[in-house]
Design a protein around this nucleic acid. Sequence first.
DNA 1: GCCGTTTTCGGCCCGACTGTTTTCAGTCG
Length: 576
Amino acid sequence: MPVHNADIAAVFDEIADLLEIQGENPFRIRAYRNAARQMESMGMPAADMVAKGEDLTELPGIGDDLAAKIREMVETGKCKALEKLRAKFPPTITTLLKLPGLGPKRVKTLYDKLKIKTLEQLKAAAREHRIRELEGFGDKTEATILEALEQHAEQVTRFKLAVAAQYAEPLASYLKRSRNVKQVEIAGSYRRCKETVGDLDLLATTKGASNVMDRFVKYDEVRDVLAHGETRATVRLKCGLQVDLRVVSTESFGAALQYFTGSKAHNIEIRRLGQDRKLKINEYGVFKGKKSIAGATEESVYRAVGLPWIAPELREDRGEIEAARKGKLPKLVELSDLRGDLHAHTKATDGHHTLKEMAEAAKARGLEYLAITEHSRRLTVAHGLDPHRLRKQMEEIDRLNQNLSGITILKGVEVDILEDGSLDLPDEVLTECDLVVGAVHSKFHLPRAKQTQRILRAMERPYFSILAHPSGRLIGSREAYEVDMLKIIRAAKARGCFLELNAHPERLDLMDVNCQLAKDENVLVAISSDAHRLQDFDNLKYGVGQARRGWLTKDDVLNTRPLKLLVSLLRRTIKK
DNA sequence: GCCGTTTTCGGCCCGACTGTTTTCAGTCG
């Protein structure tokens, strides 16, 4: 069983949890947390680095000690340091930390005094009112714990970005109608376009007395008010989503927006830069002694530490600060840069609209070309096309193109990559297409080497253009399949084909870190909607968000090319 | 535990809210 970066991150996080309960040096704990984030955010599997004998201490936040622990985990599947800690505290104890209001200190007290180590024991103790007797606890804390336990299941769920948007945007509009409110922004991971958000961070600026805080806690959708102060309030909506609102004056808008956009790791780095310059940076501004020297705009905050403004999608402490310092920040791709869409379906298979309707909807969004890429025959649930039906559709597209103006339909297909790497339609018909999008829709659980070979073999076909949703993951419901993405990216480069970034909010696949890998290897990425309905073209914005998180510029994206150039790029593939 | 135009020790981001307290610790983001 291979050891994944996520496994290593989980071990480091558990060590950090247990060290916290033990009351260890907080900076040592932070080192483990930083290492866990590093493992999660890097594109390259640490196991591969170990296998190649690469130096793990080159990674930020990884020193000799943690590098040794990573090697140990990769080679033995175990971590002795964690096992030692688990001997001191039962491993289930870390589940208690996830409850709101329970931190390491209180968890340790609960364990020391009442021997509580599971959620069930905690619930029993709370019901028997044994918790309120403990020092540092009281009636309220006990009641909060009990309530949290009853809702525990729902608090771990994160919301997909597009789902969060359905709650965030109306709430922001509602708050904008408050007295003396100047701006309302949705900050946090939402602004960074993370594929899922754990909660919403709203920021409002006011000039003079405002009722925005009162309006916020009285919002229709609010189920519980968790905190309600002068400048900060936290609520839980009926849907389970937690929302924080912070109110600052307009002079502090930029500093607050920067602060609440995060990420935490990015902000820590920015503040560290501030410290080097003897500056204190907080949500109210940048201060030299007591004097505010910046804060009205985000630009002013970055300028104060000698940096240009950094786009929110890049703020993950994955090298953006270094790039900013060197003046090498990428000019990120924007939605308006997209000239076309290279993956869409119609009624012929599992879509809901006709060719013409889809083309007109794409045109209405400013696109110049649209590839229709129906499923192939193996995907019977989608009524996939056989060669005959595909040819009929191509004829229809030819006819339609003669009558359309302002948009061109490209003849494509989303052909299944079968288990052995062969394609679900014969070469003769595939060569008649303008582009061939290949996709894995079955056998997700092949071993890594086999899955990789399967895809490489499919890409060897001379007319193969784009690998659709390359990792196969469905956010929150299906893990990515095991595959050597770097190998696939390099093969794409060698063979002149491209990778898709599927913009469907459940996919967002290619993932951000792999977009970076593709960019590093000079492989163009196609941001495609995979539209099955007219409104699905609006999902392109989520694809662009993920692409921006992956550092992609206009030049790194295939479908920013005008039609003529696009066709020649696809041809080059076909000729090989 | 990591890190270093202040290199092998001594730092390590910063503030709001709550509850349990009588001045603040714990938690959270």
